[in-house]
Nucleic acid binder design. Sequence first.
DNA 1: ATGGTAGCGTAGCTA
Length: 264
Amino acid sequence: MRIATWNINSVRLRLPLVCKLLDEQAPDVLCLQETKVVDDSFPTAEFRDRGYTHIHMHGMKSYNGVAILSRLPFASVDVKHWCEKQDCRHVLATLPGGIEIHNLYIPAGGDVPDPAVNDKFAHKLRFLDEMRAWFPANRSKDRPMILVGDLNIAPLEQDVWSHRQLLDVVSHTPVEVEKLTALQRSLDWVDAVRRFVPDSEKLYTWWSYRSADWAASDRGRRLDHVWVTPPLAPALTGTRVLREARGWEPKPSDHVPVLVDLAL
DNA sequence: ATGGTAGCGTAGCTA
């Protein structure tokens, strides 16, 4: 089973690139974030034509929005809301084998890493706290589950281009990293990508648009993740971060797809 | 310390 996750920053504008990914990598399941479209306007036809007939989307006007496209049928689907908001950041579905997949778009958190003066950062921290409480209260680590998405946090030192220079930059501050790590530990989630790429090796999934030459400066961050619960860890066979997609023309996303293969 | 780009939707917010 091949699982992919990609923040595409508008599914309508990026539709040709999403189709390119499906054609070239043939994931069984593709989780999208920042679809930026209401459900009635979601471009389902192009995906159905490619065999992705099972589509679970949850979108809103202009902002956020998540979707799961699948060639495999869903036994059930759901959406979850956090922080008393209806902002379309979390969908889940049950895949064959009883595997529950969670597709998340965690709040970016704004610019100032202080919850006292920045409501967006306070929202991000609360979102993490609520998830940290919900998962162990509602799910067992013995259940086969996959958690993917744009978590908007680069937890490891080699997940950013400069650990020292980003300690005060939202996405890599100690308080966020600690909360994400607490969430990860709560169900013994395994970082599927780091299973195959040593922690000592630089690895990024996002490069800012605000750079003259993203590839030359290479100031990236690993914001997009795939985690699995312990029952699925032995099934992991490989992973891929599709760095070249950052240069796909026209109009690349600032995030690239992350793919994980499981022998199931 | 600042500004740089992108998408939505057509001003200004979000990233």
